[in-house]
Nucleic acid binder design. Structure first.
Lengths: 221, 221
DNA sequence: ATAATATCAGAACAAGTGTTCCGTGTCAAT
DNA sequence: ATTGACACGGAACACTTGTTCTGATATTAT
């Protein structure tokens, strides 16, 4: 019932089923799933389909050919995002070393429809009020993808070399100058030479937990 | 390939298939179709499925269970709407007598997704500029359903008893008074006592043929 | 190490399912 | 009346497909 991490095989199967339905508009058979996922035995496919059903990803109709329904509410898979640290204005974003397996103390669980198919995404907790011009408050969580290049219009994490601070702003490259546009429309953009910044990543999602326990503090400015 | 009128049985089947897919998200089997449509023989279902495929309403995958695809471009059926006359501002809408079979000289062919599932709908050609406040011009076609009652917000054909004219306006019943709102937002609504009007029908669709042969005339007012 | 559990493969079975063949009845045209 | 096209029903066939059984292998906990 509860969502848990799927095995690689189950993930593979769910991928295939989703694609198959969107291509054919009817679900695949057990044997079609097996063939696509390199599973020689129908019983193994059946076994993992039951797992997927117990986890709530699909519904199965007993004794009905192609009797698989994608549970639309749950079909978007759980994505476990490692919470790798905190983001301060006063220092560059610290991503963990790539290709190094590590055990994150904490993970943020979101659904795939929210964060998309991006791989290697990280969650960071925002510390301080310095991101206020990105409409991001102290305590917010930022889901980012580490990359040294972003597209125009992306909300990017940028290390300002001269002032030695990290900022989150919308990135636009215009005539060899970089325009950094705050998310807050009342604030002005800043223009910088590309050599004075270092792109650290792209923001995929920002969320804020409004807990009922603590009243939301009123910012003094 | 070309669209033609479906038999009652084929229409019934196509209805069932459409509903079945939307309910189950996988297509029905031949026998499920037969049972739902009171067809005892699978061969007859197969026979009519091939007809539906030849007419372009569905695609079939040979030897595939539940291998039916609704051709989304063609699945919306052709609806033949009898053109029963013209609509003048100076006289009530003249619908043909109900329960009397008649042979319309002309029919308007539209697809079901445009006009919905309503039965007993008629096409009327608009004559004169008097419907201009409903954004309907001379020569436009109006698809209507005859009914003596409409819901608030419906675009209704209304016979004004006192002034002896037909008008097309959005209908709102407010505090025992009827507000007739022109489609043209620059024009004011009129308020009438319900006893002074007679609802004749609900407008389902309005369309205008812009033929390349004649240039669209510029209205003088 | 040992047991318990999870995952897997192969095979066989029973039910589901599309296909095909044959015959009947209807209807319009000749 | 005869023909032909069309629609239909019944039945049988062959293939598809979900299910189940047995046993092997891998993983984890004690």
């Amino acid at each position: 019932m509860a969502k848990s991490k799927l095995s690689a095989r189950q993930e593979n199967m769910l991928d295939f089923i989703t694609n198959f339905i969107s291509q054919h508009s009817y679900p695949p058979t057990i044997r079609e799933i097996g063939k696509a996922c390199q599973i020689t035995s129908t019983s193994v496919v059946n076994y993992n389909l039951n797992k997927l059903e117990n986890e709530g990803y699909i519904n199965r109709m007993m004794r009905v050919s192609r009797g698989i329904q994608l549970d639309k509410n749950k079909a978007s898979r759980l994505v476990q995002i490692p919470l790798v640290g905190r983001i301060f204005a006063s220092e560059p974003v610290h991503f963990p070393e790539a290709a190094v397996s590590y055990a994150p103390d904490e993970t943020i669980n979101l659904t795939q429809d929210l964060v998309g198919d991006e791989k290697e995404i990280f969650a960071l907790e925002v510390r301080g009020d310095s991101m206020i011009d990105a409409m991001i408050n102290d305590g917010d969580y930022v889901i980012m993808k580490q990359q040294v290049q972003v597209n125009n219009g992306d909300l990017a994490a940028i290390w300002l070399i001269n002032s030695e601070e990290t900022t989150l702003k919308y990135f636009y490259l215009e005539n060899d100058m970089v325009r950094l546009q705050p998310a807050n429309p009342t604030m002005d953009a800043i223009y910088l030479d590309p050599s004075t910044i270092r792109i650290q990543g792209k923001v995929i999602l920002v969320f804020r937990q409004i807990s009922s326990q603590k009243t939301t503090p009123i910012k003094s400015n």
